[in-house]
Each structure stands twice: as structure tokens, then as C-alpha cells.
């Protein structure tokens, strides 16, 4: 690949960077996210379980990558059953997040007003929507 375009050269150099430290460091803000989200009373509990399950996905991915390297001498993405099996945990995690936020009830009240007394309107009526 001839690096005539500046971005192509940049991209090639980017490929020489080890991504592992980024993945490891990204866990710190994620744990902070879970810590704060847990304290938000209105945060749907099922969605929170989904976000927590993402940590299980990460753990399974690391284990699968070690197995792929040790048994097949390949990176995880090139050992299809291990790759798909690990990724399935993320599919389940995301499903829980989606279902958690699709709940019809609006969860615990943050404002002290019981949820039942809130008008259960999808969105305020907009003049343009009336047409």
C-alpha cells in the first residue's frame, strides 16, 4: 500500500500501536460509570444488570483470547467458535440494556413525586405533530 495520502500514512502508523493498554485503561471509567449509575434511583435495574454483564463479556473475551493463543497459536478473531462464543455475551448484555430501557414504567422517581401521579404522556404534544 503506497502511503501517498496523509491519512493512509497516519493509519499505517496507528496500526503499529499496541491496543491492549487502551482496552485495560478503559475499564477504569467503565467501573466509575457503573458506580454512579447504580446510585441513580431511576436507572432501570435490568439495564444496569446488562451493563454489569458487559464486564463478564470482557472477562470471557480475555479468557477466550488466552485459549486461542495457547491452543491454536492465533488471535481470538481468527478462531471462530471462541470468537462467536465470547461475543454472544455482549449480545446478551446489550439485549438486557435494551429491554431495561424499554420498560413502560418510568422507574423510581427522582423528584419525590410518585411515578403514578406523573402524566403518562409519551412526549409533550407538538404543534407540528397535530397536522
Amino acid at each position: 500500500m503506497s502511503a501517498t495520502l496523509p491519512w493512509a500514512e497516519w493509519f499505517e502508523r496507528l496500526g503499529g500501536v499496541d491496543p491492549a493498554p487502551f482496552f485495560v485503561l478503559s475499564l477504569v471509567p467503565y467501573l466509575a460509570f457503573l458506580w454512579w449509575a447504580r446510585q441513580v434511583r431511576a436507572f432501570p435495574r435490568l439495564a444496569l444488570q446488562g451493563f454489569r454483564l458487559t464486564l463478564v463479556f470482557v472477562a470471557v473475551t480475555i479468557a477466550a483470547a488466552v485459549v486461542a493463543k495457547a491452543l491454536y497459536g492465533r488471535q481470538l478473531a481468527d478462531v471462530d467458535p471462541l470468537h462467536g462464543g465470547a461475543e454472544a455475551f455482549l449480545t446478551l448484555s446489550n439485549l438486557l440494556v435494551l429491554l431495561g430501557f424499554r420498560t413502560r414504567q418510568t422507574g423510581a422517581s427522582t423528584s419525590g413525586i410518585p411515578p403514578g401521579t406523573r402524566p403518562a404522556v409519551e412526549s409533550p404534544a407538538q404543534p407540528t405533530a397535530a397536522r
Binding site: 496507528l14 496500526g15 503499529g16 491496543p19 487502551f22 482496552f23 485503561l25 478503559s26 467503565y30 460509570f33
Partner: peptide, 17 residues
């Protein structure tokens, strides 16, 4: 040749978190 995409993925994971 496209290892840069994995680095991009890792960086965006950090930023997203």
C-alpha cells in the same frame, strides 16, 4: 494491514467509557 482499526476500536472504547 488494517490493524489500525483495532487501535481505533480500543481508543473509542476508552473514550466512550
Amino acid at each position: 494491514d488494517l490493524r489500525g482499526l483495532v487501535v481505533l476500536q480500543a481508543a473509542l472504547t476508552g473514550l466512550g467509557n
